[in-house]
Nucleic acid binder design. Sequence first.
DNA 1: TTTCATACTTACCTTTCTGTACGTACTTAC
DNA 2: GTAAGTACGTACAGAAAGGTAAGTATGAAA
Lengths: 137, 137
Amino acid sequence: MKKDVLAPAAEAFTLTEKLQRGDLLSAACPSRTVLKHITSRWGVLTLMVLEDGQTRRFSELRRLIDGVSERMLAQTLQWLEADGLVNRVAYDVVPPHVEYTLTPLGQQAAQKVRALADWVEVSFPDVQQHWNSKLAS
Amino acid sequence: MKKDVLAPAAEAFTLTEKLQRGDLLSAACPSRTVLKHITSRWGVLTLMVLEDGQTRRFSELRRLIDGVSERMLAQTLQWLEADGLVNRVAYDVVPPHVEYTLTPLGQQAAQKVRALADWVEVSFPDVQQHWNSKLAS
DNA sequence: TTTCATACTTACCTTTCTGTACGTACTTAC
DNA sequence: GTAAGTACGTACAGAAAGGTAAGTATGAAA
């Protein structure tokens, strides 16, 4: 059984690497991992929900994001947390209580995600129309 | 065409369906399919590359998007074409020649995608720094 | 007293994704 | 003459994603 990898192995690269902008078109660029987390099936929806700045509990997120399983939500939140996009605060109480919020970095990402998501929702009728018109051919 | 055959059901559906905005938070909403295509591993990169408005040949895209296999690029382009985001023009010549462009709808989507991709590339150093700082804990 | 809710984790298994390899029909370059 | 490029389609297989079910400690509600 293998453990889920949250972040790639740490290389001892320093200044040069840290300061350089990622290049998504290069297969080897680790920025692809970040894109993967953000654009993952549940990552997009999670960021979308948190984008309004509200603090949400795990169970709240689970209810808001229709269809996520607990397993996947937990995994997605861990990815986003590891990337520094979401903040996790756990209270050590008996019925567990954990709160999630976006970090400043996460807010930025979430805004881009929301813009895309909004576009999809708004433009969906157009896409659907295209689907329908293709059926006739 | 077969539209007539489907008329009763289709007719009752059309208005509601065409005019309604998608709801990505609902598991059953078909707009999730569109999001899936756009945010798919190669979908994002394909839209990114086409975003500059240039017409690209299949092989060009393959070279620009480092790491895609022919199979996946073809599949991705078919999804985007079916959704009305990209335009495919095939010339019936012997060594195949096919050109891809964004449709107006696709341009809109691509702009949102590019904004997100740009953010990822620019903010990647921050994420990386977060990865590194976590290693110490 | 039994049940439920919380925030996960883990094991197990199914579904989906993705890469590799091969075929094609013909032209151009070497 | 031979190899390479073009834009795919298809079959096969391994990898990854994702769902389901079960377990946990405990307080609160029924």
